[in-house]
Design a protein around this nucleic acid. Structure first.
Lengths: 348, 348
DNA sequence: ACCATTGATGTAATCGATTACAGAAGCTGT
DNA sequence: ACAGCTTCTGTAATCGATTACATCAATGGT
């Protein structure tokens, strides 16, 4: 099989350009990477030959020689919320591109497959790593960090000790959910949580409890129900809510997906939102603005989370000192934004 | 800056392994790529040293030497439906991994950024290309195909002449929408289309018209409204529908998103689905099963589309003859599947 | 007129693997 | 014991760029 298909011509190499321009390969290389070291006359001669032949440097060879790559591998878990992460990826991509890097995504699927990602990282192709779930591919006796690549976690508490992270200030954001409902006059709240032990859940739960304490309400102002951030979990939460004798008028959901399921379920049971109960979600997904009624929620700064994480990695790759970029905790917290929409209104 | 962080040790090279095992570099290389050419005793000695040192071959060097890569670049347009494509990507990823390739995704953002992708392809890092929108990054005077990489389009009509493609049989699928509603006894249909000129729209429209003709109904059995596959387009379509004096009882939507918007809008106007009108969407997105009422639709075989496209590329990369893998049209068509749910029922 | 200095370019070593070829070792049959 | 094989392993060329160092020309100062 021919290696190239464009008319049988093989890709031009630096030597071809040198010959065409009547100079040495060193001069061609310099024309491309350090143009001001050349006499402008020579430079133009080389550039003309480059354009003429359609030369693109073979960056595999370049990488082998200089030992550094312009590729950043972003680890994306398979089981995740695509609309949410697509916007985070966008922020990462734009930031990396501005800094001259190329984003490549590696999906974590499972054991055998993930080994491939570890090898990719160890193989010298990749300059740095980002993970958007806090997790990294693992294999028995091997870690993707063995290769010594700089790495940053975005949007999640890193499962790896000491990994720098950029994430939402979950405690504050959850407090904002509570404060919103309390400010509307609701005095008792129902909470559909995330899965037990989950970092987001633990942190947000703390924010909720503290906000209630701070408002001077007792612990019985909060009725909790264990959810799991899924649609089905929202349905189950609503069923539990409907079964209560004395229902709180405010509902805090762990995310928008379960909030939408909650609304759908209580409406099917004859309750009206927001007339009978006010509800607030978490995440700010697109759908939250399309559903009926539109959903009050806390929007995560998705683009900014990705962009900030990527910026941090780029600075690390440039050799900046970790201590100069990060607080001692190793975590940069970003703030959520309250979107007050139709699913919440003043208690009567 | 130190290159590695794992205690200052640099990554072991093939020479280090050779020394540790007391053999030559050629033997180490063979132990890894052609184990049966070695005496088992030697092989085990080498493998022990490999494990001991935690050696991973530098695939940048390998690639430079052998001239072939195991990376496949998947071109993903930024403006696209993430939940839909994430499942397609999954199919691609699994298939490529089985064949020993690694998937990397490149997002198309716009001119300057896309140039980076062209350079990545020309740089020797990449073995082959997949596009999931039919489009490829372009820059003045350059095409990503100049590098001569094998390429395949999935899920879309290729905008590039002669690019092999794997896509849905849109004409048949659209005909299935019509047949479903006709079989339920609806005799007049309202159609919320996709944007004018769009390949999917043109092809599906043909399927709809032919299905109606085949049923012996006249052209006036179909009322058409120009949509654009968005939520807002669905709202506008519903408004047009509501303004009709004599409303058809069957509604065909170009996709699920606009179908959901349509339902929401007509219900707000007091109509009931499916009591007053039956409706069918297109795509089979998750949400179609969560909304109220659950949406009848045509599910695209998303995983299979990705897997089949990736399989095709892998075969091409292995040197298979294009003519042996593809029909003369250059397109492999896959069938949609009817999901009859609550939004459609027998006409009364 | 000559040496020192600067600037521009060329020569060749280098990155870390793969692999053609050569050479060594072990067998077999006579 | 030796030619003729086979089987295994080692030596060194190679992939295409970058870059340290060498070379050469031009310039300036005295």
């Amino acid at each position: 099989m021919r290696k190239t298909m464009n008319g049988g011509r093989r890709a031009p190499k630096i030597g071809d350009v040198a010959r065409a321009a009547g100079v040495s390969v060193a001069t061609v290389s310099r024309a491309l990477s350090a143009p001001d070291k050349l006499k402008s006359e020579t430079r133009e001669k080389v550039m003309a030959a480059v354009a003429e032949l359609g030369y693109t440097p073979n960056s595999v060879a370049r990488q082998l020689r200089v030992g550094s790559s312009r590729l950043v591998l972003v680890i994306v878990p398979r089981r995740t919320n695509p609309p949410f992460f697509s916007e985070v990826l966008h922020g990462i991509d734009v930031t990396l591109a501005e800094a001259g890097y190329v984003l490549i995504t590696g999906y974590m699927e499972g054991r055998e497959h993930d080994l491939r990602l570890i090898e990719l990282a160890a193989s010298g192709h990749v300059a740095g790593l980002l993970t958007i779930s806090g997790e990294l591919p693992r294999a028995p006796g091997r870690s993707i960090l063995d290769a010594g690549l700089p790495a940053v976690a975005v949007c999640a508490d890193p499962k790896v000790d000491g990994l720098p992270a950029v994430l939402l200030d979950d405690e504050r954001a959850a407090a904002m959910q509570v404060e919103h409902l309390l400010s509307l006059g609701h005095r008792r709240l129902f909470y559909v949580s995330g899965p037990a032990g989950n970092y987001n859940e633990v942190t947000r739960h703390r924010g909720i409890v503290r906000a209630i304490e701070k408002a001077g309400l007792g612990r019985n102002a909060l009725v909790e129900h264990r959810g799991d951030y899924t649609f089905a979990g929202g349905v189950a939460g609503a069923d539990a809510y409907l079964a209560l004798a004395d229902r709180p008028t405010g509902v805090v959901c762990g995310n928008d997906e379960s909030a939408i399921a909650f609304v759908k379920t209580v409406r099917a049971a004859g309750l009206r939102v927001p007339e009978d109960l006010s509800l607030i979600g978490f995440d700010g997904i697109e759908l939250a603005d399309f559903c009926e009624p539109t959903l009050s929620t806390i929007a995560q700064p998705r683009f900014a989370l990705g962009a900030t994480g990527a910026r941090l990695l780029v600075d690390l790759l440039a050799g900046a000192d970790r201590a100069d970029l990060l607080p001692r905790s190793g975590k940069i917290l970003m703030q959520g934004r309250l979107l007050a929409r139709d699913s919440s209104r003043a208690a009567n």
